[in-house]
Design a binder for these strands. Structure first.
Lengths: 142, 142
DNA sequence: ACCAATATGTAGCCTGTGCTACAATTTGGT
DNA sequence: ACCAAATTGTAGCACAGGCTACATATTGGT
């Protein structure tokens, strides 16, 4: 297997991760809105994400196509069990990334900003390492 | 300033970072090829990135439009000073991210893979923190 | 010198994610 | 009950990045 193959595979994975990233963000936000407000309306989603409501509605359509969300016209958006699971995974991972960045010494504001982009590229192996690191760090310097 | 504004701004920044990410990858790879082989041919770039040569050529066109690269037909691609500067920045940042991940305990292979996606979302503040963390880590456990 | 293989470039299409503009529905105030 | 405002949905466009197919140029072997 030539050397460039592994690099190409890495780039390909990185590209594929971007496609999933938007769905993850939407799922997390919808779960957040449902928990806080009891409903997730397209307009609120759009405002929180900084996109037009038309864009939000189209992406919600993609969530529905992929079996992550359901919605009835004029009745808000809800998550399927798969969507809930994704949202939980994303939320947990997001918090972990922020915590690790802060533990390393990144200012809180930058940690929040960067985690938004970083979190979608964290593999399970890295996630485990982050978790272990946090435990050790908390034990060493409480 | 309402709470959703800052979240929207974060998402917007994250989206904008994705547009820059491809250019960064190309610049880094072109610099690498120039250093190793003395030339950077579209076909090699395409193979290393795992895309078709047509895609590579189109993206090279974008690099040229943005003043990062030059090329003459059938004569390979070269970086402008701006392109070189970008490549250097990216290479340094990439190594730093990998080093930090490994220091935290991420397996080397996962560190390489994840760094590919992570590195484009590292702000200057986080970069400084990473650098400082590495120094401290090297001092504490050599 | 020539022809085949390789490399490069061009054209046209698809998908995803954005947007604006317009249409339709629901909600709320009077 | 009704009209205005807000919300939701739809249509059509642009751009980026991916692809295949085809056209052109260069290189190298005989």
């Amino acid at each position: 297997m030539p050397a460039e193959t592994s690099q190409a595979r890495r780039f390909g994975k990185t590209r594929a991760a971007q496609a999933q990233a938007l769905l993850e963000d939407y799922a997390e936000l919808i779960a957040d809105l449902l928990a806080c407000d009891g409903e997730a309306r397209p307009t609120d989603i759009a405002r929180r994400l900084g996109v037009s409501h038309a864009t939000a509605i189209k992406t919600i359509g993609r969530l529905k196509r992929e079996g992550l969300a359901t919605s009835l016209p004029y009745r808000g958006v809800f998550l399927t069990p798969a969507g809930e699971a994704l949202a939980n995974k994303v939320r947990t991972r997001h918090r972990l990334v922020v915590a690790v960045l802060i533990a390393i010494g990144v200012p809180a504001e930058a940690a929040e900003q960067d985690a938004e982009g970083i979190e979608h590229h964290i593999s399970p192996a890295t996630l485990r390492a982050f978790s272990a690191f946090l435990k050790q760090y908390a034990g060493g310097a409480p």
